[in-house]
Simulated scan of single mutants.
Amino acid sequence: MFSAFVLLGGAMGFLGWSQSRPAAETASCYKPEYTASGDLMLPKNFERWIYVGSPLTPNALNDGKANFPEFHNVYIEPCSYDEYKRTKAFPEGTILFKELQLTQDQEFPDGSRTEPSGRGYFPGKLNGADVTVKDTKRYAESGGWGYYNFNHHEPKATTAKVKARSECAYCHIASAKKDDVWTQFYPRLDD
């Protein structure tokens, strides 16, 4: 009887802890970090952020010359995501992290290959990262967003300089669906 009570008491204590834990935890929002010279520092722990999608533009479907020949695994900082879902607007300080990942070697002319799940395109090695930050004052001349490249190869650079409007922003301004973000490719953001 005593052991059953101890076990039950322990289980009840565990259940009470696990149910009240989220309320006790405070979500910490990750804000962009810059060096003294104004370069963006590579965001930390992005892989724990909200995953929004992975467009793919392989070389094999673009005459061997895709501008971005990888899966674009895109994540958004969780507090920014929560605010976006609540207001339908990207808040100041939003960070979108695009991890670049090549496809595995092709078997067929279209770049696809066969794996146990079938014929398709399969993720290969990591190939760097791009990061976008919303700050309408800092990036006023590029539509309110700053665009950074942390190498198009691994390992990722630890800091990056903002890209000129003509390198990234112009395409986002001209073609992205909402607030210079390609929400049309990310169902979690396209409501």
Rank of each mutant, 00 (worst) to 15 (best):
K44Y: 05
L102Y: 08
G53Q: 14
E83P: 00
A89C: 00
Y30Q: 11
C29D: 13
N73L: 09
N67C: 09
F46G: 05
S80G: 15
T103S: 07
V52Y: 07
P32C: 04
L56F: 01
A66T: 09
F46Y: 15
D105N: 08
R48M: 07
P32N: 09
P43W: 05
T35Q: 05
N59K: 04
T35N: 01
L61S: 09
S80F: 05
Y75W: 08
N73Y: 02
P91K: 03
D39Y: 05
Q101C: 01
N62F: 15
P32R: 07
E70N: 10
E77M: 06
Q106K: 15
D82T: 12
A27K: 14
G38T: 05
A36I: 06
N67E: 15
I95N: 01
E47I: 03
T26A: 11
W49Q: 07
M41L: 12
R48G: 12
D105K: 14
T87L: 08
S28I: 09
D105E: 14
K44H: 08
Q104M: 15
Y81A: 09
S28P: 05
K44G: 01
E107M: 13
Q106I: 04
S28A: 09
F90K: 07
C29E: 13
T26I: 10
A66N: 13
F71W: 08
S28V: 13
E70K: 01
Y84F: 15
H72Y: 00
E107S: 02
Y34R: 03
Y75F: 14
V52L: 11
A36S: 13
E99G: 01
Q104N: 02
S37Y: 00
E107F: 08
T57G: 12
E25R: 10
G64A: 14
A36Q: 09
I76Y: 07
N59W: 06
P69R: 09
Y75I: 02
V52H: 12
D39M: 10
E92G: 08
D82H: 03
T35A: 07
Q106Y: 08
E25P: 03
E25F: 11
C79D: 06
V74W: 00
L61C: 06
P58A: 10
A27N: 11
F97T: 00
I50K: 14
Y34V: 13
E77G: 03
T35C: 04
E83I: 06
P69E: 10
L100H: 00
Q104S: 06
T103Y: 01
G53E: 13
K31L: 11
S37W: 01
D105Q: 12
W49G: 05
N62E: 11
K65M: 14
